[in-house]
Amino acid sequence: MADEEKTATEEPAGEPVEKRSKGPAKVIGGIAGMLGLGVAAAIMAVPSRDTVPRFKGVFHHAIFAEKFSANLRDNNQTRFLQMTLDCEYSAYSHDYLPARVGDPLYDPRLRDAVGRVVSDKFLADTYEGPAREAFLTELRDVLDPILFPMHLGDTELPLELDEESGIRLGISYYKSTFRGRFFEHVLAIDAPQKTLQIDGGSVVSFTGGEEDLLVTSEAGDSVFVDVTGIEPEFQGELHIGVKGRLRRLYGDLIAQ
């Protein structure tokens, strides 16, 4: 019986049975693996939007530590408006706006700007309903460039010199209309060729003696630049723009 079972399990004599090759499956599997790696590499090569810093917040800040007073137009400007102003803002860091008090120009410019707006108003233009909202919106737009001024390069204060390039904002910096976010825009500098360019805007030539050189972005927004201290061999890009944005003003308004 053992011999019969052994005979039954043996392959019949004759031509040898050809074994099927596993080569094509291996090739297909290899190609699929390579394609998978290629797709993964392509995905990894796409730069993440998170690599560019974004504004955070909404944060809160008290603009004036004490009540601020400014004269109104009423009664030959003998009436005045007392106010406390608070704001909501977004910024790369919530510490930015509180630190602005360290800029010696911050408080004088702030008080001058508020005084100019208030002195052009009657009480009815500031105090109630839609007029109050319009007044606070106008103040917000005037104060935004003071609370969040433009920066050029690696500087703590907006008007400081960028040490690497030797460039700073120009004399008419306060007239600049460029308000792009700092980490999303660059000023391209080619000192040997004596040219500047914001993003894809017009290339502007300089001689090296300009304290108030006008440079415009592709959208037509302006920046005034001082190139008198430029490093003669510098070629590179500096970030340019604002580090936060004022969203809303509110506070107490009291007429006297």
Rank of each mutant, 00 (worst) to 15 (best):
S205A: 13
F206S: 00
T207M: 02
T207R: 03
T207H: 01
G208D: 08
G208F: 04
G208N: 13
G209M: 09
G209W: 01
G209I: 07
G209T: 12
G209P: 00
E210I: 03
E210D: 03
E210G: 02
E211R: 13
D212A: 05
D212M: 10
D212E: 13
L213H: 00
L213G: 01
L213V: 01
L214C: 02
L214G: 01
L214S: 07
V215H: 06
V215S: 06
V215A: 03
T216W: 11
T216R: 10
T216K: 14
S217E: 10
S217P: 01
E218C: 03
E218I: 03
A219K: 06
G220P: 07
G220T: 07
G220I: 05
G220C: 06
G220H: 08
G220M: 05
D221H: 12
D221W: 12
D221F: 11
D221L: 09
D221C: 11
S222L: 01
S222Q: 14
V223W: 00
V223P: 06
V223N: 04
V223E: 08
V223I: 11
V223M: 09
V223F: 01
V223S: 05
V223G: 02
F224A: 07
F224M: 12
F224C: 08
V225L: 15
V225K: 07
D226V: 07
V227N: 14
T228C: 10
T228L: 12
T228I: 12
T228W: 08
G229K: 14
G229P: 04
I230F: 00
I230L: 07
I230S: 02
E231M: 15
P232S: 14
P232G: 09
P232L: 10
E233S: 14
E233P: 08
E233V: 14
F234D: 03
F234M: 04
F234G: 03
F234L: 08
G236W: 13
L238C: 05
L238W: 07
H239P: 00
H239L: 08
I240G: 06
I240A: 07
I240C: 02
G241P: 09
G241D: 12
V242Q: 11
K243E: 15
K243A: 06
K243V: 11
K243M: 13
G244Q: 04
G244H: 02
G244K: 09
R245P: 01
R245L: 09
L246S: 04
R247A: 14
R247W: 03
R247L: 15
R248G: 06
L249R: 04
L249G: 06
L249W: 00
L249K: 03
Y250V: 06
Y250D: 12
G251E: 04
G251M: 04
G251L: 05
G251I: 01
L253D: 07
L253S: 14
L253E: 02
L253N: 12
I254T: 11
I254P: 02
I254D: 13
A255N: 04
A255Q: 10
A255T: 07
Q256W: 11
Q256D: 13
Q256K: 09
